[in-house]
Design a protein around this nucleic acid. Structure first.
Lengths: 228, 228
DNA sequence: TCGACGCTTAACAATTCCATAATATTCCGT
DNA sequence: ACGGAATATTATGGAATTGTTAAGCGTCGA
């Protein structure tokens, strides 16, 4: 499924960097706009309405901190992710940036893969608000988080709440092993204390209801979701 | 659903401090585990696999310095950030700590906002690309630490925990010979005492399961990982 | 109120893992 | 080639972990 990944505004005063980032992101299908300083950034942002802004901190004519402060002040960018580009590893700036609404930091020199994954996760974080039907499919299996159902080869299977949450968690990262206490904390919460067999019993029920073996036990470690 | 920020292990012998930190971090969505001393810390770290460890320096039953030394010796915590908690503003300790692998220091009394930002930046620095899995490939062989699997020419092989850890260790530095007692310490820990044949048996099982001969015996010295 | 259902626990079964012992084999220096 | 030492192999029992089943309890809706 080829989805349009998003629009990104790059703000940096060094043309080389803009060019570098721009090239990388275009190849991944993003739409790109660029600005040279804070003033231009705000103008282009209103016009281009990016999903995400990559903002250099050190800039002439209005620096990154000041720019983000203004952007956040207008609430038309409430749904826009902002990532800071920092040359230095300056904690003060990072703290400052976080306080006023940066969503992440990437320090130069920029590694393309890192850039891509950070942008990906920032966008994903922000896109949650837009209500698409949240569903995942794995072969014949479909997990629908808005309808709270699981279907296998078209037939819907009814899972109880805990069972569904457990399966959702495991399926959120197929193949990845979730430790038992990680599962406990994430499905049951940090305060609740339940016995160890409780997880097993739920796993059992899921396996039973779904029929095929989706969940693999990794003894001494945890469980993972995997299509055979 | 919220973004999952990470897992943190708190190590301190004062229950009040553990409680205080724990409460603060839980409210930010972190998963928390706690340990009272160095020995317990190492045990829990292996089992909880935290992204970050908050380590008190003054502790009974193995102090912070000694603990971090051991943690860093086992390669399985190479990707784990470690922050020291110091009551005193002792430069000697800080220098000592940095030398052996601490990533930051926080001095008591602890201020919640400071704690949160420091933890945030330490995690960001260390953040593995959760998107891409932690894996190593050697020709046709792939070791995947998030999935806990080893695959050879595409077929997945299931190793038991100890076997997997042993293979991971050897594969972490291909070609390098690991001494037997080095292996013992890193895979089994310093406290556990097992006979010499135990290593051999596990090596045997790995060779058997994987099929090809990945592990070379260096008689009188140890073992090394090597693709033929 | 009754019954159905979801969740947790307890009790027991089944499985897997792991360390050791016992024996065989290989390696290496002489 | 020989002897001794180190490692390989195999089998085994116990420990640790997980699977399974049934029962108890609370909640919700008919």
């Amino acid at each position: 499924m080829e989805v349009f990944p998003g629009k990104i505004l790059i703000v940096d005063d060094e043309p080389d960097i803009v060019e570098f980032i721009s090239y990388n992101l275009k190849s991944k299908g993003y739409l790109i706009a660029a600005a040279r300083d804070g003033v231009e950034a705000i103008r282009k942002a209103r016009d281009f309405r990016p999903d995400l802004i990559l903002l250099d901190i050190m800039m002439p004519n209005k620096d990154g901190i000041e720019t983000i402060r203004e952007l956040r002040a207008m609430h038309e960018f409430d749904d826009t992710a902002i990532i800071f580009l920092t040359a230095i590893n300056d904690e003060k700036i990072e703290i400052e940036g976080l306080k006023i609404g940066a969503d992440d930091f990437i320090s130069k020199p920029i590694k393309p893969e890192l850039l891509a994954t950070r942008i990906g996760s920032a966008l994903r974080r922000f896109r949650k608000d837009e209500e698409h039907e949240q569903k995942q499919t794995f072969g014949d299996l479909e997990i629908n988080k808005t309808k709270f159902t699981v279907s296998y080869k078209g037939t819907e299977i009814l899972l109880a709440k805990k069972e569904f949450e457990l399966l959702s968690l495991l399926a959120s990262k197929p193949g990845r092993v979730f430790l038992r206490n990680e599962i406990l904390q994430r499905v049951w919460g940090t305060d609740v204390i339940v016995g160890d067999r409780t997880i097993d019993v739920h796993i059992r029920k899921i396996r039973q209801k779904v029929g095929i073996d989706l969940i693999t036990t990794v003894k001494g470690v945890g469980y993972k979701f995997e299509m055979s």
